[in-house]
């Protein structure tokens, strides 16, 4: 088999803070093929968005990539000069952000904002041609009357429309990988479904690989082929979405699933995971989840468990010796 499109190996991202070094990502490895959607789930502050930013080289000081490697299209992105990285961003890999209202510049028409991609990555393209491409893109993401709409400012559009524009930006140059960082969190539930449909449809059409960062298991279940559950900067469980969600092995994944209210069994009690996310400047000794874990034993304080495949399904991996 050919090498995967994206291979992340032992990625570490650190932030220098007054309270000490915060290890936002503490050794994440994953790989992704073309035409696949990978979900990254976890609570706020587990490092899932940081992974996305690191992929695009958007980690800003005081943060830095402290170790590991990101291989994308057979080249390493870590330590790539800013010039080279800039050539890739928007072009080969792009990003969809959480809040479409904040992602669009309020004083620029949406057409100009999409056109900016062509301006930097296709400098030889004629103005007229850019304009046609922008209109095409807007139509592709389901904006009616695209030609006129391209001259609108972001505040003249609804939230769902704005997210469509952001998606059009991400798609403009037909990238190989799109990182979608909570693309539906700021939207109404009905609009959410439309946007997810749109992302999935366009992804299938172009064979793009997508990393979908979300805290919403429902969104992940509906959209992703594979899922990686993150906790305290590490992946604690990963595998095919259906398998992981139906048979969660890690107590944290099980806890996440149990803490969702269910619509089919309304009488079922919602069981939140006790405690809060650990302070990443001062993480607990041993398995980072053990202070909140219902199954914790004395051995959990010794050593951080590695992600290893389960016996029944080799693609399903879990970082808990009690569960494997």
């Amino acid at each position: 088999m050919s090498t995967p499109l994206l291979q992340v190996h032992d990625l570490r991202v650190e932030y220098a803070s007054p309270r000490g070094l915060v290890r936002a990502v503490a050794g994440v490895s994953l790989s992704l093929d073309r035409n696949r959607i990978l979900g990254l789930v976890g609570e706020s502050g587990c490092g899932k968005s940081t992974v996305g930013q690191a992929l695009l080289g958007l980690i800003q000081p005081p943060g830095r990539i402290a170790g590991g490697d990101i291989r994308f299209e057979n080249r390493s992105l870590v330590g790539l000069p800013e010039r080279e990285m800039r050539r890739l961003r928007g072009n080969r890999l792009s990003m969809i952000f959480q809040d479409p209202t904040a992602t669009l510049n309020p004083v620029m028409t949406i057409g100009d904002q999409i056109a900016e991609l062509f301006r930097w990555h296709r400098p030889r393209m004629r103005r007229k041609e850019v304009q046609t491409r922008v209109t095409e893109l807007l139509e592709r993401v389901g904006i009616v009357d695209a030609d006129r709409r391209s001259r609108a400012y972001p505040h003249e559009l609804s939230g769902g429309m704005r997210q469509r524009v952001v998606i059009a930006c991400a798609l403009a140059l037909d990238p190989a990988l799109i990182v979608a960082d909570e693309p539906t969190t700021a939207l109404d539930v009905t609009v959410q479904a439309q946007i997810l449909d749109l992302i999935r449809g366009l992804q299938a059409e172009h064979g793009t690989a997508v990393i979908l960062v979300s805290h919403d298991l429902g969104v992940i279940a509906e959209t992703c082929d594979d899922v990686a559950v993150m906790y305290a900067g590490r992946i604690v469980e990963s595998g095919p979405t259906a398998e992981v969600l139906a048979r969660p092995r890690h107590p944290y994944t099980a806890g996440l699933i149990a803490s969702r209210p269910s619509i089919t069994a309304p009488d079922q009690v919602v069981r939140p995971i006790p405690g809060t996310v650990p302070d990443l400047a001062n993480p607990p000794v041993g398995c980072p989840f053990h202070p909140r874990c219902v199954r914790a034993v004395a051995g959990c304080r010794e050593g951080i468990p590695a992600l290893s495949p389960t016996r029944e399904e080799p693609r399903h991996a879990v970082a808990c010796p009690l569960a494997a």
């Binding site: 958007l58 952000f97 904040a102 510049n105 309020p106 991609l117 930097w120």
Partner: peptide, 16 residues
Amino acid sequence: MEFVEAARSIGVPGWR
């Protein structure tokens, strides 16, 4: 603001 990061994420150079 996020739109500046968004601009960076599509490869817009700093001066622009």
